[in-house]
């Protein structure tokens, strides 16, 4: 083989591998996607051609499933989590990044260490505590739990981005006449924006997909989408067509979000990585 042929050969191998990896990853999603448009009878057959129906999407919003309610809960809980977490995490991250604090390393590691504890271990204390203060099966309770989950990640991620902002820039702004708060508002926040966005989306995804705590701590009023999926059971077994339709509804916002902020997301990821 000449050099040129060799190169072409390896290119083909690479492309082949990538296509294969992509297929392996996409097959389950493709299956769900098709199942969501199949009628109850077609679901158990691997038919590629069938009469698509939108009925599943209508069914999941009706009694007894009421997916709309759960969608509302999920949206509210995830949004509130992000809206509360990001400002607080930003303030914490800025302090960790820019000030020399007593016991800084210990605090940072402790914050992360909370995530080393398996959720199953702490879920019972949470249950008891929430029962006593009346937070069981409330959205507020879920928001608090989600905050506890996402904050460590948010702080660490945002700290990485703020670390990446040259100190010179902040000092220049201070000498130019800014107070510390003006520095943060005019310089740090705009420069860290891709990072804040990345962290925000990351937190949203965590909160949106959170299953275990929502399963134990909610029962009726505050049930979220992932728990709602468990409802699609009948005497004849799992209702795969409805499950799939609901699955698409869960995935869709993530998908749209990801598309919208793809540019920032990559920028955010690499900015964190370069540092």
């Amino acid at each position: 083989m000449t050099g040129k042929q060799k190169k072409a050969f390896w290119n083909a191998v690479q492309t082949g591998l990538i296509v294969m990896a992509t297929l392996i990853m996409l097959v389950p999603i493709a299956w769900i996607f098709m199942a969501a448009f199949k009628s109850h009878v077609d679901v158990y057959q691997l038919k590629l051609f069938f009469r698509p129906t939108l009925e599943n999407f209508a069914l999941v919003f009706r009694e007894p499933y009421n997916l709309g309610e759960k969608l509302w809960n999920s949206t509210l809980v995830a949004l509130a989590t992000v809206v509360i977490a990001i400002p607080i995490a930003t303030m914490a991250a800025y302090s960790f990044s820019r000030f020399r604090l007593r016991g800084e390393t210990v605090m940072l590691v402790t914050i992360l260490a909370t995530q080393f504890v398996p959720a199953v271990v702490i879920i019972l204390p949470f249950f008891v505590m929430f029962r006593d203060v009346g937070l069981l099966d409330t959205r507020l309770g879920l928001i608090l739990v989600n905050l506890a989950i996402v904050m460590p990640f948010a702080i660490w991620m945002i700290k990485g981005f703020i670390d990446g902002i040259p100190l010179d820039t902040e000092e220049a702004a201070m000498v130019d006449g800014s107070s510390r708060l003006q520095v943060i508002r005019n310089i740090v926040l705009p420069m860290a924006a891709p990072g804040l966005l990345t962290a925000g989306i990351f937190c949203f995804i965590l909160a949106w997909n959170e299953f275990l705590f929502a399963l134990i701590l909610t029962s009726k009023d505050a049930v979220t989408l992932p728990i709602g999926l468990a409802l699609f059971k009948a005497e004849e077994g799992d209702l795969w067509n409805l499950l799939s339709a609901a699955g698409i509804i869960i995935m869709l916002p993530m998908f749209i979000l990801a598309l919208m902020i793809r540019k920032f997301f990559v920028q955010g990821m690499t900015m964190g990585a370069v540092r």
């Binding site: 040259p166 820039t169 000498v175």
Partner: peptide, 18 residues
């Protein structure tokens, strides 16, 4: 505070606002 000293500074790495 730096802002109240009425000085202007040029930094080695310029310290521009990107």
């Amino acid at each position: 505070l730096p802002k109240d000293r009425d000085v202007a500074m040029v930094f080695q790495n310029y310290g521009l606002y990107p």
